[in-house]
Amino acid sequence: MPATLTSLHRYPVKSCRGETVETAVVEPQGLAGDRRWMLVDASGTAVTAREVNRLVLVHPEITPTGLRLTAPGVDPVEVETPEPTTQVAVSLFSSSFTAAAAGPAADAWFSATLGVDVRLVHLDDPTRRRTSGSFPGGFGDPGDRVSLADGYPLLVTTEESLAALDEEVLANAPTGREPLPMSRFRPNVVVSGVPAWSEDDWRVVRIGGATFRAVKGCARCVLTTIDPDTGLREREPIASLARLRRYDGKAWFGVNLVPDSPGVVLRAGDEVEVLEAVEPGGGPLRVPTGNPVAPAH
Rank of each mutant, 00 (worst) to 15 (best):
T98Y: 06
V90R: 00
V77C: 08
A102G: 03
A101G: 11
T48V: 04
A108E: 01
T85G: 13
A108P: 10
E51M: 13
T65N: 13
P72M: 05
L69F: 09
L57C: 03
E51L: 14
P76E: 05
V90W: 04
V74G: 07
P104M: 08
F97H: 05
S94V: 13
A102P: 02
R54D: 00
V52I: 06
V79N: 04
P104H: 03
P104R: 05
A106Y: 08
A101H: 08
P82F: 01
T70C: 10
S96F: 14
A101E: 12
T98K: 00
V79F: 10
L67K: 02
A71C: 11
T48E: 03
P60Y: 02
T63R: 00
E83L: 15
E80G: 13
F110I: 13
P60A: 04
G66C: 02
G73Y: 05
A100M: 01
S95M: 12
V90C: 02
V58F: 04
T81Q: 11
T85Y: 12
T113S: 09
R50V: 13
I62M: 08
A46V: 14
E61A: 09
T48Y: 01
E51K: 12
T81R: 04
A105V: 12
A71I: 09
R54C: 01
A101Q: 09
G73P: 07
E80F: 07
T70H: 06
V52A: 01
S94L: 15
V79K: 01
T70N: 13
A112K: 15
T48L: 03
V88Q: 07
P104D: 00
R50P: 07
F97V: 08
T98D: 14
V79H: 10
H59Q: 14
P82H: 00
S96W: 11
A46E: 14
L55N: 02
S91W: 02
F93Q: 13
T65I: 01
L67T: 00
D75I: 06
V56H: 03
T70F: 07
G115C: 04
F93S: 10
N53D: 11
V116M: 09
I62L: 06
V47P: 02
A71F: 06
A89P: 13
E83Q: 14
P76M: 03
S111Q: 07
V88E: 14
S94R: 14
E78I: 00
L57G: 00
T81S: 09
S96I: 12
F97A: 02
V56S: 06
T70D: 10
R50K: 05
W109N: 07
I62E: 14
T86P: 12
A49H: 10
A102R: 01
A101L: 12
E61F: 06
V88F: 02
V118C: 06
D117K: 15
T65C: 10
E51Y: 11
S91K: 05
T63Y: 07
S95V: 13
E61R: 09
R50H: 03
G73C: 08
R68T: 02
S96L: 11
R68A: 09
L69R: 10
T63S: 04
A99F: 02
G103W: 00
T113H: 12
R68N: 12
H59Y: 11
T85I: 15
S91T: 05
V79M: 08
V79S: 03
S96C: 14
T86I: 15
P76H: 04
V90I: 03
V77Y: 13
S91N: 09
L67Q: 04
A112S: 15
D117P: 15
T48A: 06
F97W: 02
